[in-house]
Each structure stands twice: as structure tokens, then as C-alpha cells.
Amino acid sequence: MADKRNEIWVFGDYRNYFQNRVTLQLLARANAIAPAIDGLVCAVVLGHDVGEYVWEYGAHGADRIYVTDHPDLKTYSGDLYTHLMVKLAEEKRPEIILIGATDFGREFGPRVAKRLETGLTADCVGLEINRDGLLVQTAPGFGGNLLAEIVTPKARPQMATVRPGIFQEIPHDDDRKAEVIEIPLPPDIPRDRVRLLRCEYRPGRDQCLEDARVVICGGRGMGSKSKFKKLFELARLLNGEVGATRPVIYSRWADHEALVGQAGRQVKPRLLFSFGISGAIQHTAAVTDAEFIIAVNKNPHATMMKMADVAIAADANQVCTALIKELKRRLKSS
């Protein structure tokens, strides 16, 4: 008997640990929204020798898993995966398709949506079901300074790519077992128009800044290299990492590795100090996920000051020095 429940699909993006994590996060979110639309959480896994992932997705909340396991799929291919995903979606008609907003997902998702003639919301940071049973997709714009709530009222499936790290995965549970449906590789599969000549794994640069719970960012307003150096001492006292804006990098007060922004790293600390930074969108885009922001700037009207939880209108260097002194005093007294 056919299952009449609305299928919520999660694309199994497993190529590396990080990609696999976002897949697990999406399975968790799919489980959370499923009851509101009588949904069935499904994972779609394409590749070769993917049994391990099929088992893992079952243990992390998938009710059903569609698998195409074939040697021709042993490397990731945007062209072939698009073809297979579209074909399967046309047949099974899922209500929702969620894809991790990895580099691959953000290239693959749009192509699937285009072929299915449906809407797609990019890099979502929120997913809810509204009173009409529609998926409300919250997506950032203008570097996270604005959030838009987007729905796809008529076209189906409703599709979203979703930012990694937003949702909490369901703990692994071996007793949870999914129904596994094998989909053979269709015979009429087109030739891959993109030839992969070489593929090298580049272990990610260290993630110290990205993972830091305290980040101290300094900008041009720190004034000089020697003054900027004090931020490192402050960071040491707070178990934090130092980030910088582009002018700081250009002036060689800090290494390029420290660049925070559109061209550099994205941070999401519990506490962000921002010293002498104007708040250009190319920088702020990468700090809007900070939980609490303390900004110091001579100019109270600077954009960075407006987006701070605490905005201190003062000289950045003097405040930094006073902070170090006060921290030392307190750390000694305890």
C-alpha cells in the first residue's frame, strides 16, 4: 500500500565530515517539522559504497532512504546527481527537499530546482511550518543584516539550501532503522558533461577563528601595528582569537589568516569585541552570528556601533589597555 504521507527529503551530502554533519542536522530539522504536515523524513543517497551513510542516516532520524549505489557514481558529479535527483523527485513527488548549503549543495540545489520549475531559498537559517502548512524559509541578505521569510505557495517541491551549524543533530540511535529503497541506476543516464581530471583533498585551514568562543577583532582604528599587538594579549587573557579587517591586513599589522569578512573567515563566537572597525558590509557579513557584540569606536554613529549589544564611544587603544589591566587585576584576585 502506498504511503500517503508527505515526503520531506534530505539530500545525503557525505563527501567529508563537515558536509555529512549538515546532512544530520537537516534530518533532525526535518523530524521537527514533520508532524505539522504529516511528513515522512526521507534521505536520498547517491554514490558508490555508501552503505555506511545509509546506516548512519537511519540512526540519525531518516524514516526512509532512497539509495542509488553504482560504480559510475563514485565521484561527486553535479551533472549526474542533478539528473538522478530530478528523475526521482518527478516520480516520488516530495513535498519538501532540503539540501545542505555546502559549496556542492549551493551549486547542485539551484539546478535541481530549475529543472523541477520550483522555488529555492538559499542558505536558510530557519525553517518552520506555518498555519497554512507551508514551509517558511528564513534567509539572510545584505550580509546577514536582513532576514527574509520566504514561502513557495504553489510550486512543489518546496526547496531550500540550509546553512551548516544552525540545527542540532539527533543523537545516533542504533535502534532506529530506516526503510531502505534501492533505486537502480537508470539505463538512459546522460554522459557527464564535466570531466573531472583531478581532485585533491585540501584539509581545511585551521578553524581556530571560526570555532573560537571569544573573538577580538581589530580595525584601522587601532592606529598602529604596535597598538594592534595589544589585542593579542587581550585575546590570551580571554582565551580568544584575534581577527582583523582588510586595511589591517594590507598594513601588515596581522596575517592574512586573521581576515574576517566576505573575503576571509566567518566567525560565530559567544562574545565578539570589535575595536576601531567602521562596519563595512564586507566585514559585518561575517560577524552577524556573534551572540554578543561589544564595539569600541570613536565615532558613535559607525555601523559597527549600531549593530553592537554594547557600544562604547571611546578610543579603541585606551579601552583595550584598560581592559587588559582590569582583567589582570581580576584574574589575580580569584
Binding site: 520550483t118 522555488g119 529555492l120 543584516n145 532576514l147 514561502v151 552577524t288 549589544d309
Partner: peptide, 14 residues
Amino acid sequence: PTKIVNVFSPTAEK
């Protein structure tokens, strides 16, 4: 196919 139903500024709410 997509419709924007609401726009808001998270930073403005601090």
C-alpha cells in the same frame, strides 16, 4: 514561485 512574506533586521532588535 517564491514569495517574500516578511523582512526584518536581526541587528536592529538588539
